[in-house]
Amino acid sequence: MEVVLFICAFLSVAMVVMIIVFIFGAGLPLFKKVGLRDFLFSTNWLPSSRTNPSYGILSFIIGSLYVTFGALILAIPLGLLTAIFLSELATPKMNRILCSAVQLLAGIPSVIYGFFGVMVISPQMRKWFGGTGYGVLSASIVLAIMILPTIISLSEVAISSVPKGYREASLALGASKWQTIMKVLLPSARSGIFAAVGLAMGRAVGETTAVLMVGGNAPIMPEGLTSMVRTLTMNIATDMGYASGIHRTALFATGVILFLFIMILNIFVQLMQRKVNKKE
């Protein structure tokens, strides 16, 4: 059994290594033809031009940042407050009902979220803010709904795992229920909450289908919340079906940047977790 478990663990690591080797091997040759500076800091994406093709992805990087952090700004407060309610305030019956709803929310396919965004969210954005209704704000709202189950579930587990003695000691010293939650439980569960936010951030960065349906998919620099946007994942999904030659290589190079982008975000979250753990 020990050998079987070792083989499974080895295969998991091997698959990650093979994916990294494949993506980097297919994408890095682009930088011999197109400079890294032009690729990262240019906003011109014209791969189909016969006279002067260009492969700048800065607008896609900015679009990914806008949509990801917009979704986190919306989802973190709502998800954390829901987790607090589930772990500390809800009755057992209500806890079971709401946890089942959160699990159901996590199982809905991405295309259904995208369809909901197209039919419900985008028309409302068009009505309230004008424009097409497709853009950063619509994509952020849809993405926030999609990452809520991750934040709620993991944060609820982290808060519930705080030792019961912490609650009893705080209440015995005269603290109110809310003071106990804010001053004792949340600081004690910070490590788990950071992990929840990190996983939600990775889901947000990597989401393609739903964002593609409501983001507008315009290869331009986003100028505001109502501006249409194209993210790194959207760019790969949109062009991969017909790309060839250096255009296809540019899409793999976009995957390399996306991979590094996610790694940087994960490293940042892990450093924050270590800082919190060290302080504790």
Rank of each mutant, 00 (worst) to 15 (best):
V4Y: 13
S138P: 12
W45I: 02
K275Y: 03
M228N: 11
N44I: 13
V184K: 02
L65R: 00
T238F: 15
L80W: 03
Y166Q: 15
E88G: 06
M119L: 14
A210L: 05
K278T: 03
D239I: 02
P109F: 09
I19A: 14
E280F: 00
E280A: 00
A237T: 03
Q273N: 10
N44V: 15
A26V: 06
G114T: 08
V211N: 03
L65H: 01
T150S: 14
A253M: 09
T209D: 06
F39R: 08
V102F: 11
N44K: 13
V16T: 09
H247P: 01
S140L: 12
E223W: 04
P53G: 12
F24Q: 03
V136N: 08
S191G: 08
G198W: 05
S170W: 05
P187R: 05
V142E: 13
L260M: 11
I257H: 10
E223A: 09
F10S: 15
I61S: 06
A139G: 15
S64D: 07
I57G: 06
S100Y: 08
E223I: 11
I264E: 12
T150E: 14
F10K: 06
S49I: 04
I23L: 14
F194N: 08
S227H: 01
V4G: 07
V111N: 04
G35R: 06
A218H: 11
L81C: 09
M221I: 04
I267N: 02
M125S: 05
F24A: 07
F116P: 12
T132W: 10
A106L: 04
S170M: 07
A101M: 11
E168A: 08
V184Y: 06
V211Y: 03
T43V: 14
S170F: 05
G174T: 14
S48D: 10
L271A: 10
N235D: 13
G27V: 15
L74Y: 03
R50F: 08
L58V: 00
M272R: 07
L72H: 08
M94Q: 05
M1P: 10
P149R: 10
Y55R: 01
A26D: 05
T209K: 01
A237G: 03
S161H: 13
L89Q: 11
S64A: 04
Q273H: 01
A14R: 07
F22M: 13
P222A: 08
P77Y: 04
L80V: 15
W45V: 10
Y134N: 08
